[in-house]
Write a protein that binds this DNA or RNA. Sequence first.
DNA 1: CGGCGCCTTGACTTGCATCAAAAGTAGTGG
DNA 2: CCACTACTTTTGATGCAAGTCAAGGCGCCG
Lengths: 244, 244
Amino acid sequence: MSAQPFSTHCSHSQHAHCSDCRLAGICLPISLEISDIDRLNEIISRGRPLQKRDYLYRSGDPFHSVFALRSGAIKTVKVTEDGLEQVTGFHLPGEIIGIDGLATNTHNNSAVALDTSAICEIPFHRLEELSVRVPSLQRRFFQIMSKEIAEDQALITLISKNSAEERIAALLLSLSARNHNRGLSADNFTLPMSRADIGNYLGLTIETVSRIFTRLHKNGIILLDKKQVTILDAARLKTTSQAP
Amino acid sequence: MSAQPFSTHCSHSQHAHCSDCRLAGICLPISLEISDIDRLNEIISRGRPLQKRDYLYRSGDPFHSVFALRSGAIKTVKVTEDGLEQVTGFHLPGEIIGIDGLATNTHNNSAVALDTSAICEIPFHRLEELSVRVPSLQRRFFQIMSKEIAEDQALITLISKNSAEERIAALLLSLSARNHNRGLSADNFTLPMSRADIGNYLGLTIETVSRIFTRLHKNGIILLDKKQVTILDAARLKTTSQAP
DNA sequence: CGGCGCCTTGACTTGCATCAAAAGTAGTGG
DNA sequence: CCACTACTTTTGATGCAAGTCAAGGCGCCG
């Protein structure tokens, strides 16, 4: 379609190829052969970027695709019967979103952009076809689902067994590790979400979140300017994340 | 092997057939054709019952089967790095346990009998083979996995947004509904788990669990004798389970 | 009978929520 | 570019739900 060369490394490009993507090492193509990556690439469509607050999908939407996040950040949200929102996860580039709709053919979460976000859309029926020929892709899929379960269970444990300070320290460490995993700085990154989102996710009020941040700051463990976090003492952050 | 006829309805029998099982309507065979149930039945093995406190599998065990609970009750437990236990679910007859090991080929939860429990073991590689010929079985499997995700997310919401009283009321209603679904009384049942298990599951201390039970009792909402629960006022239990 | 789990009850403490208000930041339009 | 409004974050003061500590009851089994 475009004369733009495939070799671009701009993560917002709508014309990249999976094998060129900076995130190939952590995204869906993990452990695929080059030729399989080509086939995967063919079924992926790259739409326009989402703006902050845009929905990628809404609870109740019919399920026909899963999505890979190329840049930006996404939160997934579950709305309860009584209208409360529960943030169930924050998603960074290289992560796969949307398998939640697989069973019922309907998404039962909503996914919202926290920032301008570039997305790869992967039609699920094509992925299923491809899975038949590429067993490692099928396995990769089960991995993603059960990673979701493991993360949810880790969050249950975090919320029910840890103090406010421990929960926030754990979240910072998780974001740090995931940034590091993407080849970015482990000690210096931007929080893509609001304090309200953090509070909602961790079962705390926004006031408590704020107070804990200033406490961590005063203790010389982190530096905090607006949404920019610098981890000054990762070791101490680790210890404060652990239950006594 | 045995001369015992297949028509037995005793749930502890090691010689039942899926199509005879009282739980056929809610267990794995849901929506299968008779002939498919036969094929499913052939790959299921029914071992001796587990005794209270016996492990069905332990975290770290190699994954080769999923299990259907025929009678009794099972809790699933996740052990964190720092050695704390988190109860992640209670499982009643007709429910499927053990898919958590699918991705890594290793169970990352443990499953413990809360009571004498009869189990059907379903070797996963045989199930996969059968799935190829029986698409509805494959779909059923995805359903089970994503039901697990939905339940975990519901628990996250419950713990992070609801008071102690609301959490316990919600648990009682869940147990009630699941009993009813099995054709048993919705208003009168036995708690298979200890107060400590309930507290662990809901993120509460055992003292709080006990106090809430006596409060619900004093308010005339439930009757409680040891582990025997009678729901006197289901409507009021429902309202106390909801956030204000 | 005595010892050991499990559960209940009471008195006290505390971490976090709530309420309230100010300070900081962003978005909009004249 | 600044003024105006609206949202987000911080900070402080106060109250309460649930945790902690401690003691006693009850059923169970050797």
